[in-house]
Design a protein around this nucleic acid. Structure first.
Lengths: 164, 164
DNA sequence: CGCTATCCCGACCGCGCTGGTAGGATTACC
DNA sequence: GGTAATCCTACCAGCGCGGTCGGGATAGCG
């Protein structure tokens, strides 16, 4: 398992903010209802997004959250990083964070033969980071709204078994 | 954290088999000593590699393990898959295994708006799988043996603090 | 002014998995 | 037969994840 539900819920939350809240703030309750996610848990998740300055909040009645930037300017690497804390493929990748999310291997006992696995994990990490960076929130929102109208219809078009 | 220590230890084990055991089988004890890993734990890990037919075993005294194929023919996707069981980026990616390691998303309540996150996680998964498939065991063995001879030397070249 | 909807924050908690150990059975070389 | 090794199963502590609870602060509204 690469990512936890924090990433899943957090991304879904951002998508919902992008879909519902063009102007007015969207309450967590609305998101919780739309996506069928536990409200109390969402509160903790959205806190991570706020700390990363990906969303802004309005307190009080009729308050809620809205995206801090345009969906086109929100890349998934930043999002997942904010939600998961770090993106180290292995435990030995200590959270250096000198650059941004890029972490380095620090084995306890590199005595002699430095870890060749480092080469492998680094490749994986860089690849994942690149994949995430290449996907923007706008893309996901677009993908979802285009699948919304008639899901059985599209399934038949693509010659797939219709979902139950 | 993407991968557990199973993957780390398993890969290191394979590397050690490739380095030490060109002809004769290598005992787990030897690997355990060389890599400083718990022997009993290695036993359970190597069992996974054997079930995946990546290593072969010889029982009895002077027995041990050897690679089932040439290092050039062992790609990391197969290795990591054997060690970790699956490579699903999210919990909702159920282990279909129709193709090979490729898994599909099956959300509980896709009611209406199918998960757009699926798009994201699929991209990540495919990317990781590709990265792993592009790295062979031979490459890692080569990488390590080339770093072996004088590690202090290389550290000084790169203007880094020498390891303790 | 008080009510209520909302954000905010910290404490708490059960469960499953990871990493690791223990102990023994089996096999084969000498 | 001793011994070095693979094999197998059960066991266990720690920890992080997913989730809840209770309460405090804050702002619109009648």
């Amino acid at each position: 398992m690469f990512f936890t539900t924090k990433a899943e819920y957090g991304v879904r939350l951002l998508i919902e903010l992008g879909r519902q809240g063009t102007d007015h703030p969207v309450s967590l309750k609305a998101v919780s209802d739309a996506e069928n996610l536990p409200l109390a848990y969402l509160e903790r998740i959205v806190a991570l997004l706020k700390r990363a300055e990906l969303v802004e909040s309005t307190r009080g009645a009729h308050g809620g959250y809205r995206l801090a930037r345009a969906p086109e300017d929100i890349a998934m690497d930043e999002v997942v990083l904010a939600l998961e804390g770090s993106l180290a493929p292995m435990e030995c990748f200590v959270d250096d964070r000198s650059d941004d999310g890029r972490v380095l291997c620090s084995h306890h006992d590199d005595s002699g033969h430095g870890c060749a696995t480092k080469l492998l994990w680094t490749r994986v990490q860089v690849g994942v980071l690149k994949t995430l960076a290449d996907t923007t929130l706008a893309e996901l929102i677009d993908f979802q709204t285009r699948q919304l109208p008639r899901i059985g219809e599209r399934a038949r078009e693509q010659n797939l078994p219709a979902p139950a």
